[in-house]
Design a protein around this nucleic acid. Structure first.
Lengths: 231, 231
DNA sequence: TTTAACATAGACCGATTGGTCAAAGAAAAG
DNA sequence: CTTTTCTTTGACCAATCGGTCTATGTTAAA
C-alpha cells in the first residue's frame, strides 16, 4: 500500500475519492462519487441556537461557561453541537462575530443616518446610556471578552481588535462629516475624537455591568456629549 | 448532656472555653485556657504571596485560573493556601482589595498633589496612557473582574462598585478644586466630568489589554484632555 | 421496501477542577 | 529530653471539565 486518500465532503452533495501517493503530493486517481441518498434535516435553526449560546457567554464569560449549560440553553444534544459548531472555542468565536456584526451594524446605522451627524451621535449615546442603565445590563460581549482574552491567543485578540476598529470607524465617519458641515471646529482632531468615543462606549458598557443605579451612566453620557458643544 | 461549647482561637494566644446551655443563649461556665506552647512560623510572607496570586488572576481571570497554577506561582502548598486565604474565591476577593487599594492610592496621590489640579489630571492620564500602551498591558484587574463578575454575586459586585466610586471621587476632588480656582468654567458639572474620566480610564484599560499599537490609547487621552481646555 | 446518509440522545472517556485530609516535620515551652 | 502547636507536603476525593462515540431514529432516493 503506497497511497493515501482524501475526501471532500458535503451535505447532500456529490463528493470525490482521491488516491494520492505516499508523500501526499501527487494525485494518482480521482473517482467521482455522486451521492444517491440523504438523511433528515437539522431539527433546529443554527442561527437561533448560536444566539442562545452567545447570551450564555455574554452573561458568564468564556471560561465560566460549561458545555452542560450551553447544551441546556441551546436545547440541542452534544453531538449536534460539535457537528454544527466544531468545539467550544469555535462556537465562542462564532458568537463573537455574530455579536460584533450586530452591534457594529446598529451603531453604523444610527451614525450614518442623514441629517446632523452630531445629532446622530447624541441619539446613539443616549441609547447606549439607556441600555447600560438597565439593572440587567450585561455590558458588551466584546468588552467582556477583551477582559478574558488570554494574552497568547492571537486569533481572538484579532477579532476583538477588528471590532474596536469598526466601532471607531463608524464614529470617525460621523465626526468627519460633522466637521465638514461645520458642526465641529475645523481644528478638531476627528480621529482622536472617534477613538475617545469608542473608548467611552466600552467604559460605559463595563461600568453598566456592575452599576445598579442609572446615575453613573447618565453622568458619563452627559459629560461626553457636553464636550461636543465646544469641540 | 444539656450544654454546648465554643472556643475563640488565636495564633500562639490564650483562649477561652465557654460552656453554654442547649439553646446557646446562656453562658454557664467560662474557663480561661492559657496557651503554653507554639509551633513554627509561616515560611512565606502572606502579602508577597497574595501579590503573586493577584498577578495570575489579573492575567487570566478568575474562572480560567486553576488552583494548580496559583500554587505554582505563589510557591506554597495547597494546605497552606487554604489555611491562609480560605478558598479560591476569598483569595480572589483579597487580591481584588489589594489591587483596588493600591490603584486608588496611586490615583489619589497624583490627583491630590498641590498645584494645578488640571495639571495633575493631565499627568495622571498620560501616565495611564503609557501603562496601557505597553504590549504587555493587562488592563485593570478591577475592570477585568467587572467583565467576569456573575450577575448574582452581590458581594463581588459591591467591591467593584466601591472601587469605581473611589476612583470617581478622586477625580471629583480634583475637578472641584479646579473649578474653585478658575481652571474650569463655573458652569462645568464636575460630578459628571469625574464620572466621565473614571469611565474613560476604564475604557482605556480595557482597550489597552487588546491593542498592540500605542496609537489608540494615545488618541483617547489626547481627546480626553482636549475636552478640558474648554470646559 | 430496502438502504445509505444524515441527526439525535445520552453513555462514556481521561483529564482536570476545587477542596480535604492524614502523616511527617519543625519550633519552642517545660 | 518530651510535649504541644503549628506548618508543610502530597496523596486523595467527588464532581465536573471538554470532547468522543455508539446506538437509535429519521429521512428520502432507489
Amino acid at each position: 500500500m503506497s497511497g493515501g486518500f482524501a475526501v471532500a465532503e458535503g451535505r447532500g452533495q456529490e463528493f470525490f475519492l482521491a488516491v494520492l501517493n505516499k508523500n501526499l503530493d501527487r494525485l494518482i486517481y480521482v473517482c467521482h462519487m455522486p451521492s444517491m441518498t440523504r438523511g433528515p434535516d437539522k431539527q433546529f435553526d443554527p442561527d437561533a441556537v448560536l444566539e442562545k449560546a452567545m447570551q450564555v457567554f455574554w452573561a458568564k464569560g468564556y471560561a465560566a461557561t460549561g458545555l452542560a449549560e450551553l447544551q441546556a440553553r441551546m436545547g440541542i444534544g452534544r453531538k449536534s453541537l460539535y457537528d454544527t459548531f466544531g468545539n467550544k472555542r469555535q462556537l465562542f468565536i462564532k458568537a463573537l462575530q455574530l455579536y460584533s456584526d450586530s452591534v457594529v451594524g446598529q451603531i453604523s446605522a444610527e451614525l450614518d443616518k442623514k441629517g446632523s451627524p452630531l445629532g446622530n451621535v447624541r441619539r446613539l449615546m443616549r441609547s447606549l446610556e439607556e441600555d447600560h442603565s438597565l439593572p440587567e445590563s450585561m455590558g458588551c460581549l466584546l468588552g467582556v471578552s477583551m477582559a478574558q482574552c488570554p494574552s497568547d491567543d492571537g486569533e481572538m485578540a484579532g477579532i476583538l481588535r477588528h471590532h474596536i476598529q469598526r466601532v471607531e470607524e463608524a464614529f470617525y465617519r460621523a465626526f468627519k462629516r460633522a466637521r465638514d458641515i461645520g458642526e465641529l471646529n475645523r481644528s478638531t482632531n476627528t480621529r482622536d475624537l472617534a477613538r475617545l468615543f469608542m473608548g467611552i462606549a466600552q467604559g460605559l458598557a463595563l461600568v453598566g455591568r456592575v452599576q445598579d443605579a442609572p446615575s453613573v451612566p447618565r453622568s458619563i453620557v452627559n459629560a461626553a456629549l457636553a464636550t461636543l458643544k465646544s469641540a
